[in-house]
Amino acid sequence: MSPDDRRSTTSEYGVLGVRDVDFTLDRFPPARDLASLVERHWLVSWELPAGREASVTLLPHPCVNLVLDGGRLAVSGVGRDRFTYVYRGAGRVFGVKFRPGGFLPFLGRPLADITGAVLPAEQLWGPSASGLATEMTAAARVERMIELVESFLRARWPAEDPQVELVGRIVAALLHDRDITRVEDVSDRFAIPPRTLQRLFARYVGVSPKWVLRRYRLHEAAAVLAQEQDRPWADVAAELGYFDQSHFIRDFTAAIGLTPVAYAQACRRREAPVSA
């Protein structure tokens, strides 16, 4: 794994099932001077025949997103549960995905306060957020949308918080390091007592380190089973650090909505396997 890969604090997984051909998901890196807090920009776009609708189900990352949808700009806290987005006609949704912990300096209070919540951006930035939404909606090209939102964030860039960098290093380890299978492994590696680690994550990420670790492993499990439907799920579980098969089945079913076997079968049939 290259040093650049190590810097990533979120995976590219999260879309459940065999990816629908009716929409396009594009990802764009942030400007270098914003990369300490922003993981990436993303754009989902679609164009369907009249009278037809489609949907996509996602399993959220432990990140805050700034989302432009339907001409409105919103701050979306970490979502605990999968959700389904239904789309019709032609349209697009643009987002800024902040690194885990990267939005706290903008919010100025614990991220746990907005976990599971979606707030109008005006609550944080006032009428200027409405103006940004209008300008971005009118932009024909995604490059212009990125330029507008990055200028907006630069003008409101918060003071540096060294805890954000620490949280980023911990989350990157949870994402990339297969030797980490328990929260205790994190505490040992970073010399942070478990209770202190829990408080740090509640404030900066909005969910617990155990939740983050489990979510990233389940993202990978769902991606592997969608792409390689004949892979024995027990092998997938073991590769991801699940040595208790019943534990894996329980976690997977709770997050995805189907057992590993049923999920792989649905993907093999190219069905929409789950919905929220």
Rank of each mutant, 00 (worst) to 15 (best):
G89A: 13
R195F: 11
V142D: 11
A262I: 01
G70T: 12
W211S: 09
A133V: 08
N65C: 06
R92D: 08
A266H: 12
V96P: 01
T115K: 02
R270G: 04
L25E: 14
T115F: 05
G206K: 03
R32C: 01
P3Q: 08
R217S: 10
P110K: 01
P110Y: 11
F106Q: 01
A254W: 05
G79D: 06
V164T: 14
V142L: 06
S208F: 07
P260C: 09
G257D: 12
L258N: 00
T115Q: 12
A140N: 08
D20M: 01
R19Y: 07
I114H: 01
D161K: 01
L124K: 08
Y13R: 05
R250F: 09
P120A: 11
Q227T: 13
F152D: 01
R231N: 06
L34M: 13
E184Y: 09
R215H: 11
G17Y: 04
P105D: 15
F106A: 01
I249D: 09
D251V: 11
T10Y: 02
V274M: 04
A238D: 12
A221S: 10
W157F: 15
V261R: 12
I146S: 00
G51M: 10
D20K: 01
V15Y: 10
A74E: 15
A238R: 15
R189Y: 07
T196K: 08
M136H: 09
S208N: 04
R215E: 03
E239D: 15
Q198R: 09
Q198H: 06
W125D: 03
E12T: 13
P162E: 10
S11G: 14
D235F: 13
C267E: 11
A226F: 13
L148A: 10
E228R: 07
G101W: 00
R231K: 05
T196E: 14
A54G: 07
R144Y: 02
V86T: 14
R99F: 04
V86Y: 12
L66C: 02
L153G: 04
R92E: 14
V67R: 01
R231T: 15
D22Q: 09
T253Y: 04
V236Y: 04
